[in-house]
Amino acid sequence: MFNLRKKSNEAEVAATKPRTGGEDTPWTNAQAAYEDRVLRVQAQIANWRMFAFISLGIAGLAVGGAIWIGAKSKFIPMVFEVDKLGQVVAVKALHGDEAVTDPQRLVYREMFDLIENLRSVTTDRQANNSRLSKGFSRLTGAAERYVKTELRKAPPNDVGANKTVQVIVRSALRLTGKSWQVDWEEHSFSLAGEEIGVARWRATVQYELNPSPDEKVFRSNPTGFTVTEMQWQEVVK
């Protein structure tokens, strides 16, 4: 009787213990599932850790690049060469020990001078002729013929007998290639100094840079700035 009870207790204990080996039991299935879940979590942690280091590296490069760009100088030193009359004849941008000529700045200045010389009017006939002479020294071909035709409609010396015209160039913009657009205002004043009105004008200009070997021409136009085509019209509001 005692032996039967002992065997029965041993069987119950054995039934409650997990079985080892290759047997398919609830215990082995639960253990496999747990190990699989742990491995997945570890893989995810490793992936997120790798992405975090990559993101940190990209952020570091971005911050370093921003600091490098911010540390660079935003100012470009320029050297302006002027003649005895104060006119700009050369412009150079300094980059270290090298000097680079910027012809566009020369053209920009020439555009201002061209309009001021051709369109300004004073009561002094000699001053008008001097300005026109400087302006026509920059014209050739179709541009010269066009300007002569336009000025015949209102000769500056005839206009100067009744009023003066002050020219204020507002902008000179490069369009395409060697074509520019120049916008200016003409402020008219009576001989008593009272302002008569303001007119806005716009011109399209095409130019060439051909320095002349002739010393006399070179002194008056060292850059060889020459306007080949030119047209202007009043801008109506």
Rank of each mutant, 00 (worst) to 15 (best):
F2Q: 15
L4W: 05
K7C: 06
S8C: 06
N9A: 12
V13Q: 13
V13D: 13
A14H: 04
A14E: 11
A14K: 09
A15Y: 02
A15R: 07
E23S: 14
D24I: 09
T25K: 00
W27R: 04
T28W: 01
E35N: 07
D36L: 12
V41G: 15
Q44H: 13
F51D: 03
I54L: 08
A66M: 11
I67N: 12
I67A: 15
I67R: 05
W68M: 08
F75T: 11
V82Q: 11
V82L: 08
V82W: 03
D83L: 02
Q87K: 04
A93R: 10
G96W: 10
G96D: 06
A99K: 02
D102M: 12
Q104P: 00
L114V: 08
N117D: 15
S120M: 02
T122P: 00
D124I: 09
D124K: 06
R125M: 05
Q126M: 13
S133P: 05
K134W: 11
F136C: 06
S137C: 06
A143L: 07
K148W: 04
K148V: 07
T149L: 14
R152Q: 15
A154Y: 11
N157L: 09
A161W: 09
R170I: 09
S171M: 05
W180Q: 00
Q181D: 02
W184A: 00
A192D: 13
G193P: 07
G193L: 08
V198T: 11
Q206F: 03
Y207I: 02
E208M: 14
D214G: 01
V217K: 07
R219K: 15
S220N: 11
F225M: 03
T226V: 15
V227G: 01
Q231S: 10
Q233D: 14
E234V: 06
V235W: 02
